[in-house]
Amino acid sequence: MNQDTAKDRLIWEAGDVRQSVDRVAVETPIAMVYNGLSHAVMMATPDDLKDFALGFSLSEGIIDSSEQFVGCDETRTEKGIELNIDITIGQFEALKQRRRSLVGRTGCGLCGVESLDQAIPQPSPIESTLQISHAALENALTTLADKQVLQQQTGAVHAAAWCEKDGKVQFIREDVGRHNALDKLLGAANKLGKTEGFVLVTSRASYEMVYKVASANIALLASVSAPTSLAIELADQCGLTLIAFTRPGRHVVYSG
């Protein structure tokens, strides 16, 4: 399944109407199925799905390490894609227990949680002491746009980039969902053993984005847009450097 597809369009401009073909980002349902048990359906770009499965499993706390991720197979149908993920028995039993505790509950504001403690979990303090220069951040920002191939074609996707300490962008992941792009990146970074670097995202820095990065013990998250209050508070609590409004010649440090 392709990342983008051709769609006809009508363009109205200055009183004139013309027809053309546009490249549009593909969005499709992706079902996360653990040991045969359906857990979640995400609307995502159908690419880098094994990275997605691993990153989602780690950032959602379904597994604690890649050693508990046994494997992943894809089943593609007309309705979407199933990711059939195998995890170790202990983690699967914990997942089933978590799901049983939710039976009969309705109207939750955050899917998959049953209490305020679960809604705002706290990752462990970050052990890394990574520091980067302003020039490194500028270098990463300048390089990122050229690597966003799907964004250039469609204008409809977010990107998350893994950057080395000097600001060199090693690889990126793109997706119609900002959380999905980050999960894909974290999965890829885990597989490659990347630890000493930072993450640059093209979206806002929300609480969930900070939580996912901090849970991977990554010391710095830079965003091109604004942070939220909870994102700043969590970054302070776990020792993550949070930078937002990352633009050419300017960025704002909110934590770290």
Results as ranks from 00 to 15, higher is better:
31 A>V: 12
32 M>C: 12
32 M>N: 09
33 V>Q: 03
34 Y>C: 12
34 Y>L: 13
38 S>N: 15
38 S>C: 14
39 H>Y: 15
39 H>D: 13
39 H>W: 15
40 A>C: 12
40 A>R: 11
40 A>W: 12
47 D>A: 06
48 D>F: 03
48 D>K: 07
48 D>I: 05
50 K>C: 02
50 K>R: 07
54 L>T: 02
55 G>M: 07
55 G>W: 03
56 F>V: 08
58 L>G: 07
58 L>F: 08
58 L>A: 05
58 L>R: 09
59 S>M: 13
61 G>H: 08
61 G>F: 08
64 D>N: 12
65 S>W: 01
66 S>F: 06
67 E>P: 06
69 F>V: 01
69 F>H: 01
70 V>I: 13
71 G>N: 07
72 C>T: 00
72 C>K: 01
75 T>Y: 10
75 T>R: 15
78 E>G: 10
78 E>S: 13
79 K>C: 08
79 K>D: 14
80 G>Q: 12
80 G>R: 11
81 I>A: 05
85 I>H: 01
85 I>R: 01
86 D>T: 14
86 D>K: 15
87 I>H: 05
87 I>S: 00
88 T>H: 02
90 G>K: 08
90 G>M: 07
90 G>A: 11
92 F>T: 00
94 A>W: 03
96 K>D: 04
97 Q>N: 12
98 R>V: 10
99 R>L: 15
99 R>C: 14
100 R>D: 15
102 L>V: 08
102 L>C: 07
103 V>K: 10
103 V>E: 15
105 R>A: 12
105 R>I: 15
106 T>A: 13
106 T>H: 12
107 G>F: 11
107 G>V: 05
108 C>A: 15
109 G>Q: 10
110 L>I: 15
111 C>A: 14
112 G>D: 05
112 G>F: 12
112 G>T: 13
113 V>G: 01
113 V>H: 01
114 E>A: 15
116 L>S: 11
116 L>I: 14
117 D>P: 01
118 Q>R: 08
118 Q>P: 02
119 A>T: 10
119 A>F: 10
120 I>V: 12
120 I>P: 01
123 P>D: 09
123 P>A: 03
124 S>M: 09
124 S>C: 04
126 I>L: 05
126 I>K: 02
126 I>R: 00
127 E>V: 08
127 E>R: 13
128 S>V: 04
128 S>L: 09
129 T>F: 02
129 T>K: 10
129 T>V: 06
129 T>H: 07
133 S>T: 09
133 S>N: 05
133 S>Y: 03
133 S>I: 03
134 H>S: 12
135 A>S: 13
136 A>T: 06
137 L>Q: 11
139 N>V: 00
139 N>D: 06
139 N>W: 02
140 A>P: 07
142 T>L: 03
143 T>N: 07
144 L>Q: 06
145 A>M: 01
146 D>Y: 03
147 K>F: 04
147 K>M: 07
148 Q>H: 02
148 Q>E: 05
149 V>C: 00
149 V>P: 00
150 L>T: 00
150 L>R: 01
151 Q>H: 07
153 Q>P: 00
153 Q>F: 02
154 T>E: 03
156 A>G: 01
157 V>G: 03
158 H>R: 02
159 A>P: 04
